[in-house]
């Protein structure tokens, strides 16, 4: 190999290094652009909201606008908290899960078991359509079904039904997809031992796919936690903690909307949003952790 060739080789390797660096820089830049909104949001929420967060914020009901105005005028921290919203959200999310999880898992198993059947295909398409329905429309449907005919008035139950309809397609899909990923050989192994079919599903397929299904459920929950629009038409809101599911109730996102509309309470928006965001993030982290653990 003579010297000129050597130099040319070095040149190209230098050129390649430059290209590598450029691409690396570009990748880093794009990643920064992607993560910057979430960082900015959290930063803003923490900066503006942390002052209101305290034990009182978690266990007291929302103040009325006059109390808030007085506190503002005296330059004090706004008294009270969002306990009514937290309790309402909890009740409705638990109720919605109690409705959507069993139904979603059963439908998901049905879809997995009958991949080519017409009823299954129809159900799957409907479930996909449902996933795309705007949440306010689901609120409207729950209003027509539950508010008008079941509880005869705005209620936590109506709110829970609208959230359940929203969670349903996510749970159906994640159940079906998770089961599909389980190799057939496992099913065969169980059947070859003389296991009845329903036990193959209950004792082998569901435990094997548990983490995937659980992840789907947690993502569904974190999705509906922040829903506001359907609750406006169903749960309405309440300034007190209300444990009766046939009566109107508050929810954290509903409170945020109310605070937004009240100039005296605007400071509470940030702390409430921070709370909501923290819960959603924690749920997301848990589901990621579970997904990772069982891989």
């Amino acid at each position: 190999m003579n010297t000129t060739e050597n130099i040319r080789l070095q040149d190209t390797s230098k050129g390649r290094q430059l290209k590598d660096k450029l691409i690396l820089g570009l990748v880093i830049l794009l990643s920064l652009i992607t993560i910057s909104p979430i960082v900015l949001i959290i930063g803003k929420l923490v900066a503006k909201g942390y002052r209101q967060i305290s034990l009182e914020f978690l266990i007291k009901n929302t103040p009325d606008t006059y109390t808030a105005m007085t506190a503002l005028a005296n330059g004090e921290r706004i008294p009270g908290g969002i306990a009514n919203g937290i309790v309402g959200t909890l009740i409705m999310v638990v109720l919605a899960s109690a409705i959507a999880i069993p139904v979603g898992i059963i439908v998901g198993i049905f879809l997995y078991e009958n991949p080519g059947k017409r009823l299954a295909n129809f159900t799957r398409s409907l479930s996909d359509v449902l996933q795309g329905v705007p949440s306010i429309v689901l609120g409207l449907i729950s209003y027509l079904w539950v508010v008008k005919h079941v509880t005869n008035g705005y209620s936590a139950l109506a709110g829970a039904v609208s959230l359940a309809i929203m969670m349903l397609p996510m749970i159906v899909r994640s159940t079906e997809e998770t089961l599909k990923m389980i190799p057939n050989t496992l099913k065969e192994a169980a059947l070859a031992l003389g296991t009845p079919y329903h036990k193959v599903i209950l004792r082998v397929l569901i435990p094997t796919g548990f983490s995937g299904m659980f992840t789907g459920i947690l993502l569904g929950i974190s999705r509906v936690l922040g829903e506001t629009a359907p609750l406006m038409l169903t749960a309405l809101g309440s300034s007190m903690i209300n444990l009766d599911i046939s009566k109107p109730t508050s929810a954290v996102p509903l409170l945020i909307w109310e605070f937004y509309n009240d100039p005296n309470m605007i400071d509470l928006i940030w702390s409430s949003s921070l709370m909501l965001m923290a819960i959603v993030l924690i749920l997301n982290l848990i589901s990621k952790q579970i997904a990772k653990k069982t891989k």
Partner: peptide, 15 residues
């Protein structure tokens, strides 16, 4: 199937 055990081509223990 309880009278006939089966061992498959690829091992498939329950995970």
């Amino acid at each position: 199937r309880r009278q006939m055990g089966m061992v498959f081509q690829r091992p498939n223990p329950f995970p």
